[in-house]
Design a protein around this nucleic acid. Structure first.
Lengths: 192, 192
DNA sequence: AAGTAAACCTAACATACATCAAGCATTTTT
DNA sequence: AAAAATGCTTGATGTATGTTAGGTTTACTT
């Protein structure tokens, strides 16, 4: 039962069977069809979600209706409006399934309880968050430093499995450029 | 002794006096003069640093010698080359004092030990890292979304204490634009 | 199977920002 | 106190990316 997430947590920490069992008991399974919304602005966000299968995007719509993708998630990733989740604020993001997807939701209160009962999970999530923090820092450094073409190539290198599954439109949104610009970049790189 | 950091950790978690004492015993005091380097590329980074007083910048020099500031730190902030620190890799960043500064260094091994002995510190650093993670996400969303002028105004609003203490050159580096462009932005905003 | 929507590409033009260069003011160094 | 370095501003010019528009192909919907 839920071998994906068991493998995922066991990679980082050595849990006892009973601890894993307790963790699993907290999860709720969610099925989403393509284009279905998991979170929309003003929702209260009580869950973070582990992706068992499928592909999703987290994005923000600005005042002028432009879409800005902050995160993709495929198998083995966590996704949520983390700002809303951790700070108990209303959502600002949309989270939408790009493909039919299966998720495991973890409720914030259940998570707090779990931290108290089994501090190893506090450790697990500290390590996960630390890794995420570090990789956001490199993403910022990259946007400060690199040309759009370089960032596009890096994206393809770093996330080949995502690049194959989302449209160029999505990738352009993620990189912070217009789809037309990405098309030009791809033309110059001879990638069509 | 070290009232600043005691206040800092007590704001988040209720520690016993003995726990605080143990924590304090792990810290080493570092004094830096203006322009002195705390970390330079290829250093091994065994410490993260709490700023007691002063002001520092963490930056990357790219191949063409451009400087990109990823973080400022003033009183009450933590600073390090976190990627190098957490992943035990050689540093890629410079960390330099903008003013004479006093720091408290926390060694990675001491920190690991502390986590084992007092899990509340694991909790403390999980919460700190989570907050940092969330604010990096908004920083990314902001660079995807907003004009340079808007980002400059946001910076001034969000970090008035930093804005007062660093040069416009530094702020431009942080925002990812040229100092000349920032000067023009300020002119249009009538801020000289 | 036909109709519609979405994805992708291309081109012409507009614009924000970078680049290069110079000058003045302020701070730091000697 | 003089000299040097740094910070800030301004102008002229270049370039990458945005904007608008149109067209082709592919995928989805009925």
């Amino acid at each position: 039962m839920y071998p994906e997430i068991i493998k995922h947590i066991s990679q980082e920490i050595d849990f006892k069977a009973s601890e894993i069992e307790e963790f699993i008991s907290l999860l709720s399974e969610i099925h989403l069809s393509k284009k279905e919304l998991l979170i929309r602005p003003n929702d209260s966000v009580n869950y973070e979600y582990f992706v068992v299968s499928g592909c999703l995007k987290a994005y923000y719509l600005d005042e002028s209706g432009e879409r800005h993708i902050i995160q993709f998630a495929i198998e083995d990733w966590w996704i949520s409006d983390f700002e809303a989740f951790f700070n108990k604020e209303p959502a600002k993001l949309y989270i939408e399934a790009i493909e039919d997807s299966v998720l495991l939701g973890l409720h914030c209160d259940a998570l707090e309880e779990l931290f108290k009962r089994i501090p190893k999970f506090e450790r697990f999530f500290r390590i996960k968050t630390t890794n995420a923090f570090v990789s956001l820092r490199s993403r910022i450094l990259e946007t400060l430093q690199k040309s759009s073409a370089e960032r596009y190539l890096n994206f393809c290198n770093k996330y080949p499995n995502i690049e194959k599954r989302v449209t160029n439109h999505h990738i352009a949104n993620y990189l912070g450029i217009q789809p037309e610009s990405l098309s030009r970049i791809r033309k110059e790189l001879l990638l069509h």
